[in-house]
Amino acid sequence: MHIPDGFIDGKTTVTTAALAVAGVGLALRQVRRTLPARHIPMLGLSAAFLFAAQMLNFPVVAGTSGHLIGGVLVAAVLGPSAAVVVVTTVLIVQCFLFQDGGVLALGANVFNMAILGAGGGWMVYRGIQAVLPGPRGRLTALAFAGWISTVLAAASCAGQLAWSDKVEWRAAFTAMVGVHLLIGLGEGVISALIFAAIQRTRPELMQSTEPTCTGHRWREFVRYGLMVSVGMALFVAPFACPWPDGLEAVAEKLGFAQAATKPMLPALAPDYAFPGIHSAPLATAVAGVIGAIFVFLLALLLARVLIPNRSAPVSAANSRP
């Protein structure tokens, strides 16, 4: 998802750079104010960890493999502002040392992956955790937020490319979001598995770092909410609103886009058309909501598998002293 140089034009470069500077500046201020000094090296080490963890390839099928992206995982452990700083650092170092993502496109990449990915993902994480407390709810929230953050970043990336008139919005959106709906599933599962593994061995690690941002939570919520809505309003909404019914025609013209569309649609809504709903945007929205609910149920199931019901063995152990 790293955009190279030459793919976004002047106006997009300037807009995304301004948004990225504002977001990272706010995150830095927040970190300086709330993160205890002894956790400062943890930021650099988390960035190095994300990079090293990306070398572990999780095999999928037939030779393909996925790896951790990790913004939401870091946000769950260190808080959203620290995660924005960590992911931004990773992106800058990747840009300079590995030429992954362009120099002028750095603003766009930071906005998509650090601010939307980590910050927006954290909002989803906290929101679900407020409804579903407990360790199981935490894992559900993490898995679902990992998926959402990947899809959000992909949609914004497609919007930026389309705004620069480099690709056609519908083709870019179907290809990018379609692929990242699947990649996001992997990201959610990997994040939850790693989080569960850390919690199993060092539960106090989470508790020692997490409460550093208490008291500022609502402010961070407002801040990242604002950032995410500005991003969506600028990069996604202008294209998504006049959603034409020509989607099918384009998808037919592009053989691969047809394939890419498939995972985007849950089996219930094969043509974006629900009985009784005739407006295309509404049908798309309904399909999106159903897809999200489906993934949320998967996340619940994952959390249930990862944290089995221990009440039975405990009572058995107690009854047999």
Binding site: L28, V31, A47, T88, V93
Partner: peptide
Amino acid sequence: LLITTMALM
């Protein structure tokens, strides 16, 4: 802070 983080990374 960003430079420290980059250097450590």
